[in-house]
Design a protein around this nucleic acid. Structure first.
Length: 538
RNA sequence: GCCUGCAUAGCUCAGUCGGUGAGAGCGCCGCACUCAUAAUGCGGAGGUCCCAAGUUCGAGUCUUGGUGCAGGUACCA
């Protein structure tokens, strides 16, 4: 857990969540994608000086976990403990995820509050006991909708068949508790209407709109066929439906019904980051539950797309592809974090490939960015003995760089901090890197260095200061994405003695020209992103 | 089946209200340069804008049909 920004503002924290991941198996690329996005978003806001709360965690109840545990011959709690401690938490640590809390739905701080929340709804008349009767497939172990059934033929003539198992379904009846979701359709639509940015991206919003416009049915929120879950407070025969249990983590983790002060300081979330597979739960059921209990609604739900690996969809049921650690062991954690948000427009589906990562790494990280840092540090060392000189001869070329930086900072802050569009923000930052490379090539400091006249020395000093000061800003802007390499650059520029720790640098001030003082000690360290020659088979 | 969205250079994608010869990055080819991680800068080649018909003075951009792909069609999560 990492400390939040020091620039505490009065009022509510900027509260961001990832989904709590279902611990049926080890984390894969898709989980890492959403979690990295949340980490970058919150790190960005911390560097804006805001108080931030970043929550992630695990969803541990439900039939699937129970079954998996049984098949492994352990209790579900043991199974969850093992995965959380040996797979999930270590991966987030490895990826430098600076979450402020990690909630597990099996924790007492969660389960007690869930029971209270559901009891409240029950007391308010939002929950009623009802029966569900419908066609049930024994093979699938779930109810089917009448519309998806097939007409039987031959020996099954006249019967209806499960579309998957092609076996006759049985009509089963089960008693359940239902939440009056149907009464919230209009209220939800009104909220979507009044808050156009509530669901991002636009395509996700449209899907939710068309779904809710068709009308909503009440939601069964209890299960009685298995017991791995939170018992319904007034009826031990039932456990609370895992999704209701899971969604409530966003409230229970920040002190719902436990610590009003903490709760008010965080809740509701400003941004719920999710994968589009769980859009409906977050954009429909979750707000309805909050409305029913008189709680405020989140700022927005931002859904990311599918990650396609080798042309195949990456999902919880399809674990094909590459593990996060395989990638980081070759390219490093920074490059991994950067690539996910650089290569794919957040919200759209995107393909991940080893080849593309290798190509972008070489071109953008090694050649453009890393090499820029390298050439600048080398020249300050060679021509000024590693002491950053003063810029005393600014001209039009320098002015263009100053303006380019201001523009890059404004664009990046708007795209990343406000719009949750990482790709566009990174684009702005890397366009600036390209501009600085161009500036150096045009100014040809290595030629200016051959002239010993005072005028030439002043020009040379100005060129190198301009380049180094540009890098200072880049280190600040890239820190949320690539903490380790940015820190290396910060040290290489000798920025810390005068400016303080990198994590404390404000994005708002990153574009102010001249922050890195002349006299700073510039050292050329190891390459930020060494070229990777091999093409190891994935 | 029904609903929605997408199909633009080798690859990944941008193309606003329809209008001068269709764009970017990467890759490829050439030139310049040598401070730097054989890096950088400049230039070039490369496209029947999925197919067909239609509206229009004019369509990648609108309409209809077709083909292909993706997603949704609620309580596994």
């Amino acid at each position: 857990m990492v400390a939040t920004g020091s620039g505490t503002k009065s009022g509510k924290a900027f509260y961001v969540t990832t989904p709590i991941y279902y611990v049926n198996d080890a984390p894969h690329l898709g989980h890492a994608y959403t979690t990295v996005a949340g980490d970058v978003l919150t790190r960005w806001h911390r560097q804006r000086g805001e108080r931030v709360w970043f929550l992630t965690g695990t969803d541990e109840h439900g039939q699937k976990v129970l079954r998996t545990a049984e098949s492994k011959g352990v209790s579900p709690q043991e199974w969850c403990d093992k995965l959380v401690e040996e797979a999930w938490k270590p991966l987030w640590q490895h990826l430098e995820i600076a979450n402020d809390d990690f909630i597990r739905t099996t924790e007492k701080r969660h389960t007690d509050r869930v029971r209270e929340f559901v009891q409240d709804l029950y007391d308010k008349g939002e929950i009623y006991k009802g029966g569900y009767e419908g066609p049930y497939c024994v093979g699938c172990e779930e109810y089917k909708l009448p519309g998806e059934l097939l007409e039987g033929t031959g020996e099954n003539a006249g019967k209806q068949l499960c579309p998957i198992h092609k076996r006759p379904v049985e009509i089963l009846k089960e008693e359940n508790y239902f939440f009056r979701l149907s009464e919230y359709a209009d209220k939800l639509l009104a909220h979507y209407e009044a808050n156009p940015g509530f669901i991002q991206p636009e395509s996700a919003r449209n899907e939710v709109l068309s779904f809710v416009r068709q009308g909503l049915q009440d939601l069964s929120i209890s299960r009685s066929t298995f017991d791995w879950g939170v018992p319904v407070p007034w009826d031990d025969e039932h456990v609370i439906y895992v999704w209701v249990d899971a969604l409530l983590n966003y409230a229970t983790a920040v002190g719902y019904n436990q610590n009003q002060e903490t709760f008010d300081a965080s809740f509701p979330a400003d941004v719920h980051l999710i994968g589009k597979d769980i859009l409906r739960f977050h954009a429909v059921i979750w707000p309805a539950l909050l409305m029913a209990n008189g709680l405020p609604l989140p700022g927005r739900i931002v859904a990311n797309g599918w990650l396609l690996v080798g042309g195949e969809k990456m999902s919880k049921s399809n674990l094909t592809g590459i593990s996060p650690r395989q990638i980081t062991s070759h390219f490093g954690v920074d490059a991994f974090r950067w690539y996910l948000l650089r290569a794919i427009a957040y919200g759209q589906d995107g393909s991940f490939s080893w080849e593309d990562l290798a190509a972008r790494y070489t071109s953008e990280l090694a050649n453009d960015y890393g090499n820029l840092a390298s050439r600048v540090a080398a020249m300050v060392g060679k021509y000024f003995d590693g002491v950053l000189p003063e810029a005393s001869a600014d001209g039009d070329a320098e002015q263009a760089v100053h303006e380019g930086l201001a523009k890059a900072v404004a664009e990046a802050d708007r795209k990343i901090g406000d719009d949750v569009e990482f790709q566009a923000g990174l684009q702005a930052i890397f366009d600036f890197v390209k501009q600085v490379n161009g500036y150096i090539s045009e100014q040809e400091p290595w030629k200016v260095a051959k002239d010993d006249s005072p005028e030439a020395r002043a020009r040379l000093a100005t060129i190198l200061y301009t380049a180094a000061e540009s890098l200072r800003a880049v280190a600040v802007l890239l820190h949320p994405f690539m903490p380790a390499s940015s820190q290396k650059l910060w040290e290489s520029l000798g920025a810390e003695p005068a400016l303080g720790p990198l994590a404390d640098q404000r994005v708002q001030e990153a574009g102010e020209w001249g922050r890195l003082p002349a006299g700073s000690t510039v050292t050329k360290g190891a390459a930020l992103f060494p070229r990777l020659e091999e093409q190891p088979g994935a």
